[in-house]
Amino acid sequence: MEDQMIFDLHMHIEESTALGWQMSAADCIRAMDEAGVERSAVMTLTDLPGLNPQGLELIAEACEQYRDRLYGFLRLNPAHLETSKQLLKQAVTELGFKGLKLHPVSTLQHPGGVATIDLVRLAGELGVPTLFHCGDEPLSTPLSIAQAAAACPDATIILGHMGGYFHVDEALDVAERFPNIILETSAMPYPDKIRTAVARVGAERVVFGSDGPVSSPNLEKQKVVISGLGEEAAGLVLGGNAEKLLGLAA
């Protein structure tokens, strides 16, 4: 895999003392280089509109500074629906952002709620995917996010962490039911489940992510490397799928 282009679909740039995590754009690039990652999707650690009113500008400036390496996802709170819709339109159409990030736990917005569905539909209309935090907490389980997938069949939905520690099998079941769902590997601790995901839904619907700085890109990459995928499938999971998903493939 020495020549494999690796794309991390889930990294953060922001200084959040409340959460205890900090990563500047330069820190992000350094972590990518150490892990052999060429490109990353980056987003804030907090939601807009919210604690960091400069979150949009922060990500836009990072992507401009490291063009062809960093690609922006806008993390939004559906509770502020009209403002969030305006920000998403601006981010995608004016600033070249490549996706929407939603974290139901931090926003306390159910994935099946009217506001969330409205925002996911808008992302689909704009041609960008929605990355959900998908784990073990209430509001974030795969079955909860499946409601958004069912309501927005034309939108691409990525299950970040593919169910976390205890809901991975549920994430696999949901992905089999809804073809618009993609599974993302970050902070999910079982390499064999990556292999199972490829077997059940196809290598084209599994993508590598690290959740840096919350998790280590180097460590998270090794989960995919040791999961026992063949060379072709590993190439798709580690980078090929993300490039195609974000419209960057040649």
Rank of each mutant, 00 (worst) to 15 (best):
D3A: 11
I6F: 07
F7G: 01
F7C: 02
H10Y: 14
M11G: 14
I13W: 09
E15T: 13
S16A: 14
S16T: 13
T17N: 09
L19I: 10
G20H: 08
W21R: 10
M23L: 12
M23V: 00
S24E: 07
S24D: 08
A25H: 02
C28P: 02
R30T: 15
A31D: 09
D33Q: 13
G36E: 07
E38M: 06
E38T: 04
S40D: 05
S40R: 04
A41M: 14
M43Y: 00
T44N: 14
N52P: 00
Q54W: 13
I59F: 11
I59Y: 07
E61V: 06
A62I: 06
R67A: 15
R69Q: 10
Y71R: 05
G72W: 11
G72D: 09
F73R: 08
L74S: 04
P78D: 12
T83D: 02
S84I: 09
S84Q: 06
K85T: 01
Q86I: 03
Q86R: 15
Q86W: 10
Q86E: 14
L88E: 04
A91F: 04
E94P: 00
E94V: 00
K98M: 11
G99A: 11
K101H: 15
S106F: 12
Q109N: 15
H110K: 06
H110E: 09
P111C: 04
G112A: 06
T116N: 10
V120N: 06
L122H: 04
A123Q: 04
G124F: 08
E125V: 03
L126D: 03
G127I: 09
G127S: 08
V128C: 04
T130W: 03
T130K: 02
F132Q: 03
G135Y: 02
D136H: 01
D136E: 02
L139S: 00
S140N: 05
S140W: 00
S144N: 12
S144M: 10
I145G: 04
Q147I: 00
A155M: 03
T156S: 01
I158C: 01
H161F: 06
G164V: 14
Y165S: 05
Y165D: 10
F166Q: 11
F166S: 13
H167A: 11
E170K: 02
L172K: 00
D173A: 11
D173N: 07
V174S: 08
E176A: 07
F178E: 00
P179H: 03
I181M: 03
S186K: 01
Y190D: 12
K193W: 09
K193M: 15
R195C: 12
R195A: 15
T196Y: 06
A197P: 09
R200V: 13
R200D: 00
A203C: 06
E204Q: 14
E204M: 00
E204N: 13
R205C: 02
V207F: 04
S210Y: 08
S215C: 13
N218A: 15
N218W: 14
L219N: 03
E220F: 06
Q222K: 13
Q222A: 08
K223M: 14
V224K: 05
V225W: 13
G228Q: 02
G228H: 05
E231W: 04
A233M: 02
G235Y: 12
V237G: 03
L238R: 11
G239N: 09
G239T: 10
G239I: 08
N241E: 08
N241S: 09
A242V: 05
A242Y: 10
L245G: 00
L245R: 03
L246N: 01
